[in-house]
Amino acid sequence: MSNHLFELSQINKRVVSNVSFTMKEKERLVIFGPSGAGKSTLLHLFNRMEDPDAGVIYYKDKELNTYSIPTLRKEVGLVLQEPHLFPGTVEDNLKFGPSLFDEWSPNQGEKLLGYVNLSKEYLNKDVTELSGGQRQRVSLARTLANNPEVLLLDEPTSSLDEQNIELIEHDLQRLVEEEHVSLVLVTHSMQQAKRLGTTGIYMEEGKIKEHGQMEKLLSDPETEELKQFLQSNSI
């Protein structure tokens, strides 16, 4: 058995065209590039929020569409760009996922908020009382409540200020180290890609332009496109 977590083979979906790559277990993969490159589209294929028009995706060496969809989405959790919290309290949001699988235990709430650096007093807060940064952290904790093996993050900090970005990134770093979840992060921020990724994929116009170790991509880019992107993002 290979240690491939995901294998994408000749994927086409909207702008994404003929994309193939593999991702190993415990990898922290960052997909970056300019907007409109197809990064989010690609990310949504990992837990079947969308399906490719052509091509095959393997997850743990089995075709993705052989898994039960709710179980797959529980195991491969997605954090959306906007938090989109459900009406009610923070706890209502945290228990939404586990309750679907009869796995919620009330003492989980405090631990989950701990992951995202919020005190247990927040459990009973109504979501309308939260700031933007807190909403995004609750959204992250809500996905973590399902105990995912893979975490998909779709520009999770795009609407946040510097201070909140730092807090969320810190939470994420701690998570991958302590809980050993694999990470696929979509971002247009080079700084974030550098801080969170071990490997990177640079995309432009639906195609993978470069794929490799993050350090190498940043210090020694091979393609003109990536060189230009790095220059314009002043790395």
């Binding site: 837990n47 929020m49 989405r73 529980k74 959790g77 959306l80 919290l85 459900f86 939404f96 679907l100």
Partner: peptide
């Protein structure tokens, strides 16, 4: 739409 996508991504039918 956003809330429904969030629910689906958490494993909801």
């Amino acid at each position: 739409r956003g809330k429904i996508l969030a629910a689906l991504s958490l494993g909801a039918t």
